[in-house]
């Protein structure tokens, strides 16, 4: 594992995370994994339902800032449900409702008064299947910035280039920014979707099985990217791939049937799990 290149400046002090959504987070990069971390998202006693079916039971979980947190567990255990409550994507499902508290800094994410539109700008999401819009590559990345900011043409071009470089697809698409995004390969599409998500300057990036529709080479590219991005973003990733969780996450949470069974540093969870169920799952006995 090579040493990742420092992307921004030499700042090492950890400043409080921006709360008002107006500042940029570029000054807050973290250099060493050993430094004390701040809390990005705090989940307390979260219960979630689809209609009468309870999908999450009393979840309490801390997502540290500028780390990669992996959510693992067998299919149907509620990983996506939890993730989708972080940025209220579940609002689109009429039967979904939740009780408990989820906080991003001071913002209560479940409150009725929280502006979900602003919330989703601060917490970006990447889905399992790449879902580029049927527009050009440029327009895909420019979609978010156009919604949220007033930018001149050249400024917009800067943002698009920056986001595509960050998502490690710039070199592959720089000569065909105007061609349709659906012409890209699956892996490129997924990285385009990541670029699209970071182009609005989110604080947290949620990824729901971002590699499950990709081939091994693309998976590797996206994993590299996740490793790279954690310097500036808090990342929560859902994955079915144990190696992936082990390779690119700092913290792992194991879920089973809507309950949080175990959470801890990734190395601990994978090598010395406290719970039998966790051990069975990570060693591949079920799931």
């Amino acid at each position: 594992m090579s040493n990742p290149i420092t992307l921004t400046d030499e700042a090492t002090a950890i400043e409080p995370r921006p709360r008002d959504g107006r500042q940029t987070h570029f000054a807050h990069s973290r250099d060493q994994a050993s430094e004390p971390t701040t809390l990005a998202i705090g989940v307390r006693d979260l219960n979630a339902w689809y209609g009468d079916f309870q999908a999450l039971h009393s979840i309490s979980l801390d997502i540290p800032a500028n780390r990669v947190s992996a959510l693992i567990g067998p299919s149907g255990c509620g990983k996506s449900t939890l993730l989708r409550w972080f940025n209220r994507m579940n609002d689109t499902i009429p039967t979904a409702h939740a009780r408990g508290s989820v906080h991003l800094g001071d913002t209560d994410l479940l409150s009725r008064t929280t502006d979900v539109v602003d919330l989703r700008r601060r917490i970006g999401i990447v889905f399992q299947r790449p879902n580029p819009f049927p527009k050009s590559i440029f327009d895909n990345v420019a979609f978010g910035p156009r919604l949220h900011m007033k930018l001149s043409r050249t400024e917009l071009q800067d943002v698009v280039e920056w986001a595509l470089r960050k998502a490690a697809v710039w070199d592959e698409v720089k000569d065909r920014l105007a061609s349709p995004a659906l012409g890209l390969s699956g892996g490129q599409q997924q990285r385009l979707c990541i670029a699209r998500a970071i182009a609005v300057g989110p604080e947290v990036l949620l990824m729901d099985e971002p590699c499950s529709a990709l081939d091994p080479a693309s998976t590797l590219a996206v994993e590299d990217l996740i490793f790279e991005l954690r310097r500036q973003y808090t990342i929560v990733i859902v994955t079915h791939n144990m190696q992936q969780a082990a390779r690119c996450s700092d913290q792992t949470a194991f879920f089973y049937e809507g309950r949080l069974i175990e959470v801890g540093a990734t190395t601990t969870v994978f090598t010395k799990p406290k719970q039998q169920q966790t051990e069975d799952y990570v060693s591949g006995k079920f799931g």
């Binding site: 689109t92 889905f127 819009f133 049927p134 978010g144 919604l147 949220h148 699209r196 609005v200």
Partner: peptide, 24 residues
Amino acid sequence: SLRDGALGLGSTPWQVVWHVTLPS
């Protein structure tokens, strides 16, 4: 999935319709 993509970027419901669903 297109609607989800647009919503996830912080579009309002109408922005989703206007920029994504309606053109498609």
